[in-house]
Nucleic acid binder design. Sequence first.
DNA 1: ACCCAGGAACGCA
DNA 2: TGCGTTCATGGG
Length: 299
Amino acid sequence: MNEYSFTLNNDVNIDEIATSGQCFRWKKVNSNLYIAPIGSYLLEVRKQVKNKSVVTIYSDMTDKKAKDFLLNYFNLNLDYQKIIDSIIFDPYVKVAVDKAYGLRVLNQDPLETIFSFMLSQNNTVLNVSRCIERICEKNEQIVLDKRLSYFPFPNIETLAKLTIKDYEEMKCGYRARYLNRIAETILKKKMNLERIKKLSSDKLRTKLMEFDGIGEKVADCIMLYSMRKSELVPMDTWVQKASIELYGLRKNCTNKEIREFYIQRFGKYAGWAHLFIFNHARKYSKQSKNIKDCFVNTK
DNA sequence: ACCCAGGAACGCA
DNA sequence: TGCGTTCATGGG
């Protein structure tokens, strides 16, 4: 077992990432330590002084491969400041970025992301996390030492062996049959999720939506958070409400209209703008009557 | 008891 | 196309 670490700058904010609703397995151990099974490995992020933190990966990889894995997962090869600069002309996005600087779109495993967002329909983030954990517990536990053990997300063979009844027992509710069927189909057709990433967003969306249980919104989340489609804007209830309030879109406008408004306005990283708006609205609008109030710069 | 949660399938107009 | 209903489960 190898242990590889490096320092992260303030453009990786693990508090915000862990609670942003794009990933479901990061756990807060204490105010300075977050931990998550990612892929087959275990990751830790320890906060240091001055907005810096150290990420550690426990794996059997060489240092170079481990580094590449982390760069890839956190999207560290992207120019964070440049992306932020391209979207904070918008006053509402600017407020959201100021509150959550270091929040970033991750590049996650497609299979785990498909399962996560299938579970997310008509569900809470907390509940999705619990279902994912139960599914992972069907996998073999990896024990690093007395302090560190974890269940990696299962591979497709393991997922396909689980029956509808198994998924129901894991409290996946009516989504159980979707999960069972998609696992069986991916395995049977030998679908290579890494390869289909290269398709255009429109073709990929069509392909994903052929699966029962994946609609437009879930497809867009899968593509944004695990397939490098940074321009996509998933049409969730928060963004629908926020868009009407913030940008004065018609009350009965279609999702397509909202999505095109975002792409027109924010361009290649519209999905990032969306994540900041979603994150901010979800976290702060419970304490105010309307969404717009929490986007007004209160400094 | 009721309502909602990062929706989607289904039936019907 | 568009709109209303229904779908498990958990929490407020």
